[in-house]
Amino acid sequence: MTTFQQPLPAEAARQHKRSSKLQILRKALFIFLGAALVSVALEIFLVPNQIIDGGVTGVSIIAQHLSGLPLGVFLTLINLPFLFLGYKQIGKTFAVSTLYGVIIMSVGTALLHPVEPLTLDPLLAAVFGGIILGVGVGIVIRAGGSLDGTEIVAILVNKKSPFSVGEIVLFINVFILGSAGFVFGWDHAMYSLIAYYIAFKMIDVTIEGFDESKSVWIISENSKTIGDALLQRLGRGVTYLNGEGGYSGDDKQVIFCVVTRLEQAKLKSIVEELDPGAFLAIGNIHDVKGGRFKKKDIH
Score class of each variant (00 low, 15 high):
L29Q: 13
V288M: 09
V102S: 05
V107N: 06
R18P: 03
T119A: 09
I194E: 01
G277Y: 06
Q50V: 09
L123G: 03
V254A: 05
G129A: 12
I155T: 10
D250R: 14
V127L: 06
L29S: 15
V127Y: 00
S67M: 04
A63Y: 09
T57E: 02
A143H: 01
V135P: 08
V271S: 13
L133K: 13
I62C: 14
M1Q: 04
L69Q: 15
P114L: 01
H299S: 15
R261K: 11
I139G: 03
N242T: 07
L118F: 13
S19Y: 04
V238N: 08
L133V: 04
G68F: 04
I207N: 08
I78F: 00
K159F: 02
A12D: 09
V137I: 12
A281L: 11
F184Q: 12
I207M: 15
I62E: 10
N222V: 05
V107P: 08
F163P: 06
V140D: 10
G166W: 05
L80T: 14
I168H: 07
S60C: 03
R18M: 09
D53A: 10
Q23S: 14
E273S: 04
I31Q: 06
T260W: 03
Q232G: 00
S269L: 08
G72V: 11
A278M: 00
L8W: 00
K266G: 09
S192I: 07
T2C: 09
L85A: 14
D53R: 07
K21Q: 10
D228H: 14
G91S: 09
S39V: 11
L156V: 10
A126Q: 02
P276E: 08
D275E: 08
Y240L: 12
A143N: 07
A110I: 14
L123R: 00
I152V: 11
N158Y: 12
G34W: 00
L274M: 09
G235M: 01
W186R: 11
Q253K: 14
W217G: 11
G209F: 01
F256Y: 13
A281N: 12
P276N: 05
L77Y: 00
I31L: 15
W217L: 15
Q5H: 15
A125C: 05
S39W: 00
E272D: 12
T239L: 01
A10P: 07
E212L: 15
A189V: 10
G249E: 03
K92L: 14
F293N: 07
N173T: 04
T98E: 09
L29Y: 08
T206L: 06
I218L: 04
G283M: 11
G101Q: 07
A36W: 01
H65P: 03
Y87G: 01
V96D: 06
L33T: 15
L33D: 06
N284P: 03
E263Q: 14
F182D: 04
E11Y: 05
D204H: 00
P81D: 02
T2L: 15
E263K: 07
S146H: 01
V205Y: 08
H188S: 13
V169T: 09
G72L: 02
L46E: 02
I132V: 13
F84T: 07
V153F: 08
K201S: 03
S19A: 14
G181R: 14
L230I: 15
V38P: 13
L280F: 12
D148Q: 05
L262V: 04
R14H: 14
K295F: 10
R26H: 14
S179Y: 06
I298N: 13
